[in-house]
Each structure stands twice: as C-alpha cells, then as structure tokens.
Design a protein around this nucleic acid. Structure first.
Lengths: 150, 150
DNA sequence: TATTGACTTAAAGTTAACTTTAACTTGTAT
DNA sequence: ATACAAGTTAAAGTTAACTTTAAGTCAATA
C-alpha cells in the first residue's frame, strides 16, 4: 500500500505542507519518489510518522527529532543512545502528566468555587465560607496551592 | 506582603519581562503602583498569577485569558460564564492527560524494543521476534498503535 | 488529447508568546 | 549626596513550526 502526500495527510489529519516540511527538514529520509518526482509514502513511512508524532508530543523539537532519525540511519551502533532517548522521553511524559494532574486539581477547586457561587448568586458568598464547610478534597486542593482569596 | 516585579518574578520563576508583558496585555488589572510608578504585587496578584498559569497550562491563549479577566471585572453577572469556562478547561486537561497516556504507551513499547535490541546487540533481532514472545502489555500497545515494523 | 486536480520547489509570510534594547527614572545603601 | 541596581516604557527582535504563495509539472479521467 502506497500513499500520495495528500492521502497520507488525510490519514494523519495534517496539512500536506506539514509533511513536505518534515521531509525538507530531514525527518522522512525513506520516502520514495515516483518517476515523475512525486512522493510515495509506504506503510513504514506511516509508522515512522507515528513515532515522529509521539516524539513531538513528548516535547522534542523538529531538530531533535531529526537527530533521532540520523541515529536510526547509523544503525546498530546507536541502539543504546536511542534507548536512552526513549527512556528520557518516557520520564518527560510522566512529568507532563503529573503537572497536568496538578493543574486539574486547581480546576476542580475553581469548578467547585463557581458552582457554589452560581447557586448562591454571588461570589462574595463563596469567599466568606468557613474552611470547615469546604468539601474535604476541595479544601485540600486549595491548601496545596496556597490559595486564600481566589 | 508586597513584591516588586523582580521579587514576584523570582517567586514564580519567570522573567520580569513576562510579568510586564502580561500586565500590558491586560492580565493584571489589579496590580498597584508606588508613588514613583513601580508595580507593587500583592498576595492577590500572586494568586491571580497562579490562576493565569493554570489557564495557560489548560491550553488557553493570552487573549482568551484576558477575556476571562474581563469577566471577573464585570462581577457576579458573569459567574455562570466563568463556571462554564472552568468546566471546559477541566475537560480539556483530562483530554490532554488521556493523550499523553497514549503517547506513553508507545514510549513503553519503544523502550522495550530498544532494551531488547540492546541486549541482543542488533535491531534486526527484535524485528524478527514472533508476536507470542512479546510481553503481553507491550504487544497490546503495539497492536493498539497498529505498528508492524517500528 | 485536453482538462483539471493534485503534485513539485523555493521563498516569503504567519502566529503566539515572549525577550531584548534603548533611553530614561526610582529607590536604597553607603 | 551619590552611586547604582532595579525599576519604567515603547518598540523592535526572536523562535518554532508551520502555512501560503507563485510558478510550474504530473497523472487520471472524459
């Protein structure tokens, strides 16, 4: 199964120009060309793009991804280096998840805050609530974040 | 307790210019000034910056955060709107977390892949492993992602 | 075979979120 | 009183990751 740039772009839900940009940046060294010069994406290119996307989501820049692609081109001598890269990316993603979970805690608090304000019809009402009347898990979030008046 | 722009920047671990930029974009309407024109950040401004940071991490742009600040300035009539905003942000953050967990699955697979290649000394070895010899949870990740050759 | 939609490259343009610079003022420590 | 670190504004500069444009070529269909 081969894909044109337009077909591949549709599958991945990106702009065709994004794929050409990746190619021009050296991220897609294995994409073949038709006799007329058109890109022909294979199943392997699709899978490479999945990995590129994964590395991007993990926080790597295009340049850093290019360096990874260059490692794969060097073959077995870079296996350990690549292993370390992926282990670091895994750590980085776990960190991102932890950060987002903290962010969510504050959002939980804010949702409770505005739900309560909404029921009472005034923000002042929530601000005046005595701490012991705030639900346990909400109070906890508030304290963790050291919020007093927000 | 009041802070100069430099002190506040240190506490939040950001550049002073970032705080001035936020101010110039209308994100900090409550920051007072000394008689000489210097910004004096209060505890409330610190907490507002925590919320700004939270909204930023949830995926809002500076412009969108400004709109939220404008809502708070309008008072009680915008409580419901603000409640909806925070509920949407909470959903968005949960979505981000889910996405990152998928990303992590692929990284788990890649770590296993390169650990195995590293032990064997060759990538070809891992590519040739028959599916039933791949650990259950790793195989699962691989199939979910429809990877064959990566 | 002619049309037309999808492809090609190179180069310029876009956007958000800062960051830097320049010229000047404030406030604190000796 | 004076030095000087830290503050002020307005405006220009930076960066990454695309996206658009222009001018032309390829390939599938009527």
């Amino acid at each position: 199964m081969v894909y044109t740039v337009g077909e591949m772009a549709k599958v991945l839900d990106v702009n065709t120009s994004t794929l050409r940009y990746y190619d021009s940046e050296g991220l897609l060294p294995y994409v073949e060309r038709s006799s007329g010069g058109m890109r022909m994406f294979s199943e392997k290119d699709y899978e490479a793009l999945m990995v590129i996307n994964c590395l991007k989501k993990s926080g790597l820049t295009i340049k850093e991804i290019k360096q990874f692609i260059e490692m794969t081109e060097k073959g077995d001598e870079t296996i350990e280096e690549r292993l370390k890269l992926f282990e670091n990316r895994r750590k980085a993603v776990q960190k991102q998840i932890d950060e987002l979970q903290k962010t969510k805690k504050l959002l939980d608090y804010k949702c409770w805050y505005y739900q309560t304000a909404n029921k009472a019809g005034s923000e002042q009402y929530v601000k005046n609530i005595s701490p012991e009347k705030i639900p346990e898990e909400i109070r906890e979030a508030k304290n963790t974040l050291k919020l007093k008046s927000v």
